[in-house]
């Protein structure tokens, strides 16, 4: 099957502004492969390097060494992001624009035609139930509505790969349900979803593949069944893999 997201020996050091302090190594030679059509859960405890990996894939942070690619194109080239959608952990959009203007702006960045844009915006506003508010500035939106604008913008180009950073941690229950529905729908359409999470129950429910990172390194990767084999559930094997040991005396 096609590899559409790949990192090779990816290393990221955050250099400190203060030169006396050491630089912080966030990723230590991460090798990751995501294939077309997978719903891929990227797991790890806080500080494991999940967000850093996404920051590299999205071009926010250049790799210190190693490489990363999307659809076989090096992530340092903006065109690698032509077929992806991205939903950040926290959503903030230009507050002075209306939802419709925001979507139109992003559509232009993707180079969609006028007709495609109109069609897509109508569909998305319906999907996230913002038709009634589309012509009001985003600054008047409730938090939940802003999150739904975020979901809409991540789908504006009808992406083949959706990248979500802890999609459920920042969302209200409604937004959360929406994201799940969308993931399910994309899966049915044969698209790929790559998302980070530390909510294992949820991952177990919607993912088919997972990777577990810990301290900047890949510790395990495979199908949910493979990873959980020999344990009662995904959570148990996750705790084992990241080296958690109970301190309770039995």
């Amino acid at each position: 099957m096609n590899v559409i997201l790949k990192t090779e020996k990816l290393r990221v050091e955050y250099r400190n502004r203060d030169f006396r302090q050491q630089s912080k190594v966030a990723l230590v030679g991460l090798d990751l492969e995501v294939h077309a059509g997978e719903i891929f859960g990227f797991l790890g405890p806080n500080g494991a390097g999940k967000t850093t990996t996404m920051n590299v894939l999205l071009g926010f942070v250049p790799p210190t060494s190693g490489a990363a690619s999307l659809f076989g194109i090096d992530v340092r080239q903006p065109i690698a992001r032509q077929r992806i959608g991205y939903l950040p952990e926290l959503t903030y959009y230009y507050k002075f624009l209306t939802a419709e203007e925001l979507l139109r702006f992003y559509a232009k960045i993707f180079g969609l035609t006028r007709a495609e844009t109109d069609k897509r915006i109508a569909q998305l506003l319906k999907l996230v139930e913002l038709e009634h508010a589309a012509k009001r500035p985003i600054k008047g939106y409730s938090k939940g509505m802003q999150q739904r604008v975020g979901i809409a913008q991540s789908l504006i180009n009808n992406p083949d790969l959706l990248i979500l950073d802890e999609p459920t941690s920042g969302l209200d229950p409604l937004g959360r349900m929406k994201v799940r529905e969308i993931i399910q729908r994309l899966k049915d359409e044969g698209k790929t979803v790559f998302f980070s999470s530390h909510e294992l129950g949820e991952v177990e429910a919607i993912c088919d593949h997972v990777a577990i990172v810990h301290e900047g390194q890949l510790k395990a990767t495979g199908t949910v069944a493979e990873i959980s084999a020999g344990h009662t559930n995904l959570e148990q094997s996750f705790l084992k893999i990241v080296g958690y040991q109970t301190t309770l005396v039995p």
Binding site: L58, P78, R81, T91, Y93, Y106, I109, F110, G150, N157
Partner: peptide, 16 residues
């Protein structure tokens, strides 16, 4: 405002 992130996650270069 962190609006730079959803923007740069799209196929646009920093030069643009």
């Amino acid at each position: 405002a962190r609006t730079i992130f959803p923007l740069l996650a799209k196929p646009v270069s920093r030069a643009q």
